[in-house]
Amino acid sequence: MEAERCLSQLGEGQSGIVDRISAEGRIRRRLQDIGLIEGAEVVCVRVSPLGDPVAYAICGAVIALRREDARQVTLRREAGKTQGGRAAEGGRPWA
């Protein structure tokens, strides 16, 4: 079986669909509040110069998360599209 993919594994320009959040308590709600709910599309837009945190396009905004937190967001199994600066179909136009 293929290992689970999580948000922190996305490289710059890659996208994914949120499956579930494994964090609990306030962090969980925080991540949900910024739009990381089941089925939401996320695009990794920028890795900070020191490698952490990473900025993601979520719900039309760019939000930076630490890898530690991003690891708690599991993505759906199907491979995200690697985008060369183009928007995904029906999704938000981040690249």
Binding site: P53, A55, A61, L65, D69
Partner: peptide, 10 residues
């Protein structure tokens, strides 16, 4: 330990 962190880049 460091807690969670979300920062918007407007």
């Amino acid at each position: 330990v460091p807690s969670s962190f979300t920062l918007e880049l407007p």
